[in-house]
């Protein structure tokens, strides 16, 4: 078995506050192989961004990793010094965030930013760095890349900027890409362009990617495997066909069914009642039980079974497929 590019083992993040300690990421384990796109979905506040930030060591104080391990190609990176982490960021892990403007320096040209990043991480000459920068822009589909090297970020449209950010994330040829809602701020046509680009790059370079989004459609079309998060915990993880087609956790099921596309032709959408609890007010037992249509006594007291690393299982006492078996 090859080592996965990224492996999380029981990752836990804590935020101490004066009202007690919040746990936005609770015992999350998964792995991503080379060339694979892991989609991470869940409602707002489920801990998706927190998980991504924990991997790249960008948690804002007072949030910190309080347990578990993060392994990049088999090597622990959660205990690294800040300077070592900086070297990994950008070099071995590329990052793309929702708002392309915040990831670009408005005062430097696109070319300067790209070459500078390449020079920082790779041992190449200036000319070589420029050449690579142009190739990078070409690769993400920016027309006449050579002429656009001197342009400033504000001269690009939103979609073009996001392409530049992707080029920037990829220029040092990282093995892992973390993309946090890379298309949320973009129009559907541009979104389709960007997701197609991500898919192609992962396939061609054998890069692993963690794609955070709350758009089920994007996940269905882009991801190979999907992790569903709820209130900081992993609710379910599995291949995309399984998660979208035959979800086993009632939450995944509700999430998929509540998209308007899923109930096309019906007068009413299926909905999950209520809302995700706030972190400080998690219920006992399974965090989803107050909203679960299949809730039983055990769910109210015992937290759901943990999802394993290799297998794809649901953190639910009574997963939907098991019920079908009984029936």
């Amino acid at each position: 078995m090859t080592t996965p590019v990224l492996e999380l083992k029981n990752l836990t993040v804590d935020i101490p506050t004066r009202f007690g300690t919040l746990r936005p990421v609770d015992d999350v384990s998964w792995s991503i192989d080379a060339g694979e796109i892991l989609g991470v979905v869940g409602e707002s506040g489920a801990g998706k961004s927190m998980t991504g930030n924990a991997v790249i060591g960008l948690l804002d104080s007072p949030a910190h990793i309080s347990g578990g391990q993060v392994l990049l190609e088999g090597e622990r990176i959660d205990r690294l010094k800040l300077s070592d982490m900086r070297r990994i960021r950008g070099k071995r892990i590329g990052m793309v965030f929702q708002d392309p403007l915040t990831s670009l320096n408005p005062l430097l040209t696109i070319g300067e930013q790209l070459s500078e990043t390449i020079l920082r991480h790779l041992d190449v000459s200036n000319a070589e760095a420029d050449a690579r920068a142009i190739r990078g822009l070409d690769e993400v589909g920016i027309p006449s890349a050579k002429n656009r090297m001197g342009a400033y970020p504000h001269e690009f449209s939103g979609g073009m900027r996001q392409r530049v950010v992707i080029a920037l994330a990829l220029c040092a040829e990282p093995t892992l890409l973390i993309a946090d809602e890379p298309t949320t701020a973009l129009d559907v046509s541009v979104q389709a362009q960007i997701t197609a680009l991500l898919k192609r790059l992962c396939r061609e370079r054998g890069m692993a990617a963690m794609l955070v989004t709350h758009d089920m459609g994007v996940i269905a079309e882009t991801a190979d495997r999907v992790a569903v998060m709820y209130a900081g915990r992993l609710a379910e993880i599995g291949p995309v066909s399984q998660i979208v087609g035959q979800p086993r956790h009632p939450y995944t099921d509700g999430l998929m069914a509540s998209t308007p596309a899923a109930s096309a032709g019906q007068a009413r959408l299926r909905q999950i009642p209520g809302a995700m609890p706030r972190l400080g007010k998690l219920p006992d037992g399974c965090a989803f039980h107050p909203r679960c249509p299949f809730v039983q006594d055990k769910c109210r007291h015992d937290p759901g079974p943990k999802v394993g690393i290799a297998d794809d299982r649901a953190a639910c006492w009574f997963p939907l497929d098991a019920q079908e078996d009984v029936a």
């Binding site: 087609g245 035959q246 979800p247 099921d253 998929m256 069914a257 509540s258 009413r268 959408l269 299926r270 909905q271 999950i272 009642p273 209520g274 809302a275 609890p277 107050p290 909203r291 249509p293 299949f294 939907l320 019920q323 079908e324 029936a327």
Partner: peptide, 21 residues
């Protein structure tokens, strides 16, 4: 996704109280 009770499929009407409130 096939064997859901009818109530779950339709979802309750959003009248009445929400727990979270």
């Amino acid at each position: 996704m096939s064997d859901l009770p009818d109530a779950a499929r339709q979802g309750p009407k959003p009248t009445g109280r929400l727990e979270e409130a």
